[in-house]
Amino acid sequence: MTILSFDWAFVVEKLIMIAIIVFASLGIALYTTFGERKVAAILQDRPGPSRAGPFGLLQPLADGLKLIMKEEIIPTHANKWLFILGPGLAMTASLMSCAVIPWGTPIHVFGRTVELQIADINIGILYVFAVVSMGVYGIMIGGWASNNKFSLMSALRAASQAISYELAMGLALIALLMTTGSLSLKTIVEQQVTGHWWNIVYQPLGFFIFFVCAMAECNRTPFDLPEAENELNFGYHQEYSSMKLGFYLFAEYINMIMSSAIMASMYFGGYDLPFFDETTVAPNIAAMIGVGTLLIKIVLFIFLFMWIRWTIPRFRYDQLMNLGWKTMIPLALFNMLLTGALILAKL
């Protein structure tokens, strides 16, 4: 009987990591909603939420409390189980993608070396892709189960948008993987820490494509077609209320955080602080600096997302599809060929 022959300390360590990362991303997502409203307000010469607590800092808690306290409504003709499954799936999928992100260099606690990453699997990025494609089901199932034409329309839009942009995203990624030679996010980050340049120097076009596609995958403006208020009322979560709606909204913000973290790790050196030699300080301090650096990079990306959202209007649906299939994919293919040619020329 070798069933229970785990390294229990390892299991506990990973469980603690998971708990910390899940709660941290929920907390960050909570405050990203606040940041979204503040950024929107400041870009529009308004003060934004300022009543709850100093500078309105308690506003997200008030919002969350409101969402929880609201009445749960399940429409009579909705498919009850799928209606509940939808937001759960969306939330699970977006939280799961944080498993492969390396948050920093290993730290030493109680004589153990703890990796600041939940799982270093050798197909890290593909795992993220798989999880993201699962997130589409959350939207589709929710939209269909609502038994509402608008919700269904928007769910179909979300799915087709996600599939279309996943292609260009994958092609942009292939070019990056050709230079790194590894799918593990940890290896990619370590290459950038030890190498002289971040991957953005080698893959500027690839990053641009990836960024645009990430925006489309997160359903952010200018790609927030699934939530187009003026033609689809509210989109796939129209029939939802209370915390089920909250899950959908939260999942969007967590997706945004995770895609920021992934872009920071893949193109901007992850936890690498430029012009700073981590070996000069104690490993634990270096790890903390790394985590802080990654968080700052994530915040900057989120700001960029918001900045774009409050500047650019939404695409029309045919424009969205044209951009995805006729611009992004050929560009990504060109980028891939160019990268391959350059690699061959160097050899």
Partner: peptide, 20 residues
């Protein structure tokens, strides 16, 4: 992971699409 991306992720979404 490719099984999930391609079959569960893409092909089944198209199935759902058509059926919906």
């Amino acid at each position: 992971i490719v099984n999930i991306i391609v079959y569960a992720g893409a092909i089944m979404v198209l199935f759902l699409f058509v059926i919906m």
